[in-house]
Write a protein that binds this DNA or RNA. Structure first.
Lengths: 345, 345
DNA sequence: TTTAGCAGTCTCTTGGCGAGAGTGCTAAAA
DNA sequence: TTTTAGCACTCTCGCCAAGAGACTGCTAAA
């Protein structure tokens, strides 16, 4: 029953596109004029009236132009928007930036955030790699200063976790190396579950202390996402007219700053769904109230079998979905490619 | 000639305090009334007129109340504001939070940002530790996946730098350990300058590749500040009335987001001055145009001889300087204490 | 030196009015 | 049956004027 005629689809699509650009309600006159349509404003008005009745459009007040509703945006993103690619020369430019940069995952992440923000003109979010099942691969203990020791744990996903700890007594580097070797010998390839069950008896209290820490760390890695989330380009959002009311701006920035909300959001959408596509969340989709006025475009990156992360952007409802989707898709593909490349074959 | 009478100082101080709270121009009537002063509004008016002539106060328009100027704030911060401590129970609470948390510098940094933001009600900035003179202490090479190797460099300041690199050929962990040991043997305790001069000849190309990278990394560490800057609480600033004009808000956020500006600002003020006090920069102090409408409170932390970082907050001119200064001072002292403690003695 | 009294100045809010933009409806044209 | 022209109607927005309110600066008395 909600089937739209071809012309209705056209009208909806054009209104979305025009509104995204101008941020002003689109009138029937402007529509035919600007897009040189071969029907009259009156016809456009009729179609717009129908689209409004079906819930795709809305009127800010009795006699203003039309504005897309969330339903309108969703329809546009789902059925009307072509899946454009980023222009080739832009793709080349971005690739170039990544290959120029230091070959280092953390560095790529921060670059991703910056590139996403710049090209999508929204606020960018990039989370670090995160493994669901962590298998221990290697442990290193490095003396830094005094009784302070750097513990580096490598998981077989390639994920690395480091932490500084302070020991009870002062040990030399070679003693530390010996300790690490002992743990490495039996723990390699095991998951947290397996490690937990090992009856680890020794007369050396330091060894036990370290082993406990390794165990805790790996367990934590499975539950909590660690590492900083990379963010960039919130300035872009603030220059959009929808954030001229400071209250709206504050509310949106809150989402952007609050790690808890973000973690929940990312894990519930991207990680829980199969398929590696791009997810578009418009106005919170009636699930997240705080996102009433914002849209998100998210995609996961990484090697599905090993570690995953999320890249995405955040913008007003009135954002350029086509540009957003193509940018996010490109960056997520590029990151996956870079990572699997750097993992070797 | 700019000597103020005691009563003038009192009036100025009260106006600053009241304005900070209400964000509205303070009238003579309100002043006497609210603070139960033992002189009349007329007297207050006379004093205010003098303070205005000397440049400490300003009138938004001919017959409104008075507002402090930058000069007024500076005088207040320099001579009128007592150097309060954070209330003892708050100090305890914060200490508790830090001791509860994982004992890890990165973790403390992010906690500092969050605590600063929360207690100062401004936007917090925390930079990681940074050494001026880097001496090599220890190198570790850990195989992660395939030809991908994690290189961890420890400097004798305790600073740690890690980077992933991809080797030409596939090496086992024990081969990597052997390589690391060779480099460690002769490089320990040397600065970048010394390392550079070593004639390093070997038939092993991988060894040379790694040595080059170590060298480059240490050199970079001396010039560019590395590591993410921790930020928190920009939301606090957005709720201040001075940022109701979105243009102002955007401009300020730009400072907060732009690493280049921030780096310049921090290095030029904090690192270049002797003494470990708290620095208050009001309205850019005629040096930074972009900071026209914002104030910064900064302090360095760390062990002066080894590595330094900066903690600070950013707020509108009309910020609570006393609360800001006491919070920043407390956090910077706490961080210094924690770090030197964890370094052992 | 301080204070009461008062005239003067400027902002801010309110309401009214006209211009302009865009719609929905009706009736004619295709 | 579909499309279009014409037109009355509605609603916003900008502008202006008037009135209330808030403070001040000044003058003269305490």
């Amino acid at each position: 029953m909600d089937e739209l005629t071809e012309r209705q689809k056209l009208v909806l699509a054009l209104i979305v596109r025009d509104y995204v650009e101008t941020a002003e309600p689109i009138s029937s006159g402007r529509l035919v004029d600007h897009f040189r349509l071969d029907f009259s404003p009156a016809t456009a008005r009729n179609e717009m009236a129908i689209l409004e009745k079906s819930g795709y459009l809305d009127q800010p007040y009795t006699s203003a132009g039309r504005v897309p509703t969330k339903k309108g945006y969703r329809y546009y993103v789902g059925k009307l928007m072509g899946d454009d690619q980023l222009p080739l020369h832009v793709q080349e430019m971005i690739r170039h930036q990544f290959y120029q940069a230091r070959h280092d995952v953390d560095n790529w992440l921060s670059l991703s955030a910056s590139v996403l923000a710049q090209h999508s003109r929204g606020a960018a979010i990039v989370t670090p790699l995160h493994t669901e099942k962590a298998r221990f691969k290697h442990l290193a203990l490095l003396s830094t200063r005094g009784r302070q020791v750097l513990m580096v744990i490598v998981l077989n996903s390639g994920e690395v976790h480091q932490q500084t700890l302070v020991l009870e007594e002062n040990l030399t580097q070679s003693q530390l190396t010996a300790l690490a070797t002992r743990i490495n010998e039996f723990a390699v390839g095991l998951e947290a579950r397996d490690l937990q069950e090992i009856e680890f008896e020794t007369r050396n209290p330091v060894l036990e202390q370290i082993f406990q820490l390794v165990l805790e760390t790996i367990q934590n890695l499975e539950v909590v996402a660690t590492g900083e989330i990379f963010r960039d380009g919130f300035t872009n959002m603030l220059s959009e007219p929808e954030f001229s009311e400071p209250e709206k701006a504050r509310q949106t920035l809150e989402i952007f700053e609050d790690r808890v909300i973000l973690d929940d959001l990312l894990s519930r959408t991207v990680f829980n769904s199969e398929g590696s596509g791009v997810h578009v969340i418009i106005g919170g989709e009636d699930t997240w109230e705080q996102l009433e006025d914002t849209s998100l475009i998210l995609a996961s990156y990484g090697d599905r079998d090993h570690a995953l992360g999320v890249v995405g952007i955040l913008g007003p409802l009135r954002m350029s979905y086509s540009r957003g989707v193509s940018t996010v898709r490109f960056i997520s593909d590029l990151m996956s490619e870079l990572i699997s490349e750097s993992m070797g074959s």
